[in-house]
């Protein structure tokens, strides 16, 4: 087995004196799609913030063999950790194209950037049509596509998607899940953070289940979806 792309071990983090995460262990291999599921307030977003270096943390946090803990959010981004934040967080008074340009602002390979533009416009043709439109004026689904395209423009090594399905129609969610497989085919690795466990398990290889700041279950999704505890809590028993 090769060295993992992201390795988290014994990680603790929180806000000020309030601890949220305790002893979190999680690894992601290159080109994997890993889901992180759990109910509201389980600490998923806090874990993402720790990985993106927005909040301080203690423990082991390694990305492609380098220690992430001393890095700033800007440096983590520059190393290829790119987030599609919850609620899209687009630059609402910029055009779609300008949002995408923000994604590739640190890249210095014009040819690669041009290819990325072609690629994301092929993945999301609607964005090509709307590229001169203000991002804030689009529908929720289009905004989510724009947020994902912006992240892909950064040519991420690890793409982190926080609550992709939130507030979107199921048909749009299905479209986005298909796109994730295309993204993986480009050699990228994906961490998918979801409350919609059905959606997450439909595309992920492995999953971690989080409750009150701890990882309580992990495994590949076929095993996990048979686990009675997971079924009861997240998938609904039938």
């Amino acid at each position: 087995m090769t060295a993992p792309l992201l390795k988290i071990s014994g990680l603790n983090a929180g806000y000020g004196a309030v601890p949220i995460l305790s002893d979190v262990n999680l690894t992601i291999q290159e080109r994997e799609i890993v889901a992180l599921v759990g109910s509201n307030g389980a600490g998923k977003t806090t874990l993402l913030r720790a990985v993106s270096r927005i909040i301080p943390a203690t423990g082991l946090l390694e990305f492609a063999g380098t220690d992430l803990l001393p890095l700033s959010p800007e440096e983590a981004f520059a190393r290829g950790i790119v987030q599609v934040p919850e609620g899209r967080q687009l630059f609402g008074r910029m055009t779609v194209e300008e949002n995408l340009l923000m994604g590739c602002r640190l890249r210095r390979d014009p040819g690669g950037v041009r290819k990325s533009f072609e690629w994301v416009y092929r993945l999301f043709p609607i964005l090509a049509e709307r590229r001169r439109q203000l991002a804030g004026n689009m529908s929720g689904g289009e905004q989510q596509m724009c947020a994902m395209a912006r992240a892909l423009m950064a040519a991420p090594r690890l793409l982190i998607i926080d609550e992709m399905s939130l507030g979107l129609a199921p048909v749009i969610v299905d479209q986005l899940l298909v796109v994730l497989n295309d993204v993986r085919a480009q050699g990228m690795t994906i961490l998918l953070v979801e409350q919609d466990v059905f959606a997450a398990f439909a595309v992920a290889d492995r999953a971690y289940v989080m409750e009150t700041g701890r990882i309580v279950r992990e495994g590949n999704v076929t095993e996990l979806s048979k686990d009675p505890a997971v079924r009861d809590a997240y998938l609904g028993s039938d």
Binding site: A78, L90, M102, A154
Partner: peptide, 11 residues
């Protein structure tokens, strides 16, 4: 326009 997103994108 969006400080959080700007930081996430390396600003």
């Amino acid at each position: 326009q969006n400080l959080v997103a700007a930081r996430l994108y390396g600003v």
